[in-house]
């Protein structure tokens, strides 16, 4: 399981529509619109390939999107290290 977050920038005019459509994609959750044009997305993908596919899809298939900006990627396995190093 891979968990990633990204910021999707969209034109304020169509942002609501974009949010609706994004929410319809399986494994994708939106977390509100911020500062007018930024949508925060959480993606939970089975594999890195699926994540790439999803990102590409969002980037190219959607109208009104100005850009996508990945902010975080991690897999379950790496998580082990994080917990150990933080304790």
């Amino acid at each position: 399981m891979i968990i990633a977050s990204m910021i999707v920038k969209a034109l304020p005019e169509n942002i609501d529509e974009v949010v609706l459509k994004l929410n319809n994609i399986p494994n994708v959750t939106t977390y509100g619109v911020h500062k007018e044009e930024n949508i925060i997305l959480l993606i939970e993908a089975d594999s890195e390939d699926q994540l790439k596919d999803l990102s590409r899809y969002i980037n190219s298939e959607f109208e009104g999107i100005l850009g996508t900006y990945p902010t975080f990627v991690a897999s379950d396995e790496e998580m082990e290290d994080v917990i150990k190093s933080s304790n």
Partner: peptide, 26 residues
Amino acid sequence: SLSRRDFLRASALSAAATTLGIGSIF
């Protein structure tokens, strides 16, 4: 107690929020 996936989700959201400079509203 800490569920890994919750932690990851929280971290992911926090990273995005910080990038936008909106703190921890969620």
